[in-house]
Write a protein that binds this DNA or RNA. Structure first.
Lengths: 357, 357
DNA sequence: ACAGATATTTGGAACGTTCCAATTCTGTCA
DNA sequence: TGACAGAATTGGAACGTTCCAAATATCTGT
């Protein structure tokens, strides 16, 4: 109903002080007398004043906008959703808000949203770059003094901070675990071959295989879309092989779920008839049936950590690029066949076990 | 490295025109000569100009900020994540950006983020209200002329637009379908009784039962937590009944999955020995074994629709509260026993999303 | 070549805040 | 009482844009 906006001047007038004083109160300055302060605050409440950050940002440096941009590839993927939640947590409690957008792996869209965010004066950016992102893409940002933190996928060449999980070590431990259970033919399923993450995980797989004294066979590496559907597809190919594998490490949990689906469709029970290990440890991994053995990446932790890193740089005023790789941890559940023998699911197809356990 | 920001005045100076002309170019006005326009554009590109929306918003109405706020209850929940993606789609292609926050059902946090969004001058707000949100909470917003669209959960009493799915009709069609397959005793499983959504779905169940010429028995309504575990619990109680049901509609897909688990634990095969229908059509519904017959709610569609509604109101400049209930659609798969009789299929989902990380 | 259009361009004056330098108000001490 | 230090307050002048009214340039037809 009130037509005009309530401004700092209205407050000043109503409280019988100057706009400068009101501004001081707004910023919690210690210069202002306690009595005046409370009076001003009272008037503000009474008139329903809302602070206009836009106007403030105009005057102050953009570092004070208290907006951080967050760009992810696919919110629908639990991994990124959790990442965003992690970021939101620390960002919110620091009094910032987040601009969140997802690119759907489209590099054009990424450019668009980043540009838009810039126009809105973000104080910093956390981004999981879309595939084939050019390292130079974020150059203008850092040149303008806007800190950038790259998460999940590293961006070699760009001199920005980044925080990725230890993909090599994670995959290696997964393979070793399966080998320890007696598996000799272990497949690597899913993922697009042209990404850094894929390379890292594949390298970890290879190291694991060799460390276990097994041979590395190219045919056991079957790439596919890193999605549930991709998992179904990949396990199909794997089973069609002459000497079929008895276990698989998957590019991520989505693929692993797809692999389980594919197995069941062929009347094979994941865990019992074929060992499956995922990567990420998304929330569903622990409640799925069978519960998924997977490499826990703690996406929310990455989000929190990335946000902290970003805030630090924002406050420091200068962006000193640092790279962090976060530790991962194999979480053994049921789908690898080694889990706590616990949920002895009755009525399970009693197939002949191959060689697991 | 360039220390100072490039402003419209710098551009003007470099292009040999006035700042007003540059502004006109910025706004794509048809008043400016074609030659001048391209020259100005060239200079802007050359100097690396970035538009300062903050300054612009200061001058223009807040409706022009091109920011929409989105608040959801739990991003980690695939339902809300998809909703957000839907919103982002239309919002982004309309040249807006979204401020996204999640409240985790905390009403205090909700208040905080909404206040913060307001300070940043959002042009509109899409919100799935946290439980126990007061209808008056959004009063100040609409009073300030900021359109609000409530999604998923309606907010009776608040005179804002809302868009919810047709829970009644959905549940009704599910029941009718089961009755059409010859089931006489159909249970309603899962969900907390004190929510509006529960009431709607239960009402739909009842209508369906009566429309099919069956009797409504209170004992067949078994509430529980709306989760997988709740489903296991509920089906346990259902089977313990004197005259046990032969089919069930479930509060949501999570419950339905739990019901399937519980059935199998009792050596009953979902689909063959007992018909199960879910609600929501989450992504896993199509790839699960057996594939889940369920009521498709299309959260992404709700997001898109809500965003469109909001944009319309923003452009109209006035918020005329309208309420929309979106159509839902029964998706018949295997778990109701009516699916393709040959369940030995690779669950190849047509959806080839690329959810990489 | 000139009036009257029409097409382009252009200086300010906002917008709501912060910041700086300057001012007024308190005491306090000699 | 006057001078002085500190505490508290206060008028502008920015910040980078848009908008308005007004000015100038470019065409028309005669």
């Amino acid at each position: 109903m009130t037509k005009a906006r309530v401004t700092v001047i209205d407050i000043a007038k109503a409280a019988g002080v100057s706009k400068s004083t009101v501004s001081l109160v707004l910023q919690g300055s210690s210069l202002v007398n306690e009595g005046t302060r409370s009076k001003v605050n009272a008037v503000m409440r009474e008139l329903g004043y809302v602070y206009n950050r836009g106007a403030a940002n105009l005057r102050q440096a953009s570092a004070k906008s208290r907006i951080v941009g967050v760009v992810v590839n696919d919110l629908t993927n639990g991994f990124f959703a959790e990442l965003a939640v992690g970021v939101d947590m620390v960002v919110q409690s620091a009094g910032f808000v987040q601009f969140l957008s997802n690119t759907g792996e489209s590099i054009d869209r990424q450019r668009e949203v980043v540009a838009s965010m810039r126009e809105h004066g973000i104080s910093g950016l956390i981004v999981s770059p879309a595939r084939a992102t050019d390292a130079a893409d974020f150059k203008p940002l850092v040149a303008a003094g806007i800190p950038v933190v790259v998460v999940v996928r590293s961006l070699p060449g760009a001199k920005v901070s980044s925080i990725v999980s230890d993909n090599r070590a994670g995959m290696m431990s997964a393979v070793k675990h399966l080998a320890g259970l007696g598996h000799k033919r272990i497949a690597f399923l899913g993922g697009f071959p042209d990404t850094a993450v894929f390379d890292d995980r594949l390298a970890g797989y290879r190291s694991g295989v060799e460390a276990a004294g097994l041979d590395y066979h190219e045919e056991l590496v079957i790439s596919s879309a890193p999605s549930r559907a991709g998992g179904v597809e990949a396990i199909g190919k794997a089973i069609a092989l002459g000497r079929r594998p008895t276990a698989a490490v998957c590019f991520n949990d989505a693929v692993a779920f797809g692999v389980c689906d594919g197995l069941r469709a062929r009347r094979l029970e994941p865990g019992a008839d074929f060992a499956v290990v995922g990567f990420d440890d998304v929330i569903e991994a622990q409640t799925a049936v069978p519960a998924l053995t997977t490499v826990s990446v703690d996406p929310q932790g990455i989000g929190r950590r990335g946000a902290q890193m970003l805030l630090k740089q924002i406050n420091a005023g200068k962006a000193e690029a640092e790279t962090v790789t976060t530790a991962v941890r194999l979480v053994v559940r049921e789908s690898c066949g080694a889990g706590k023998t616990a949920p002895a699911r009755a009525g399970k197809s009693a197939k002949s076990k191959q060689d697991a356990e």
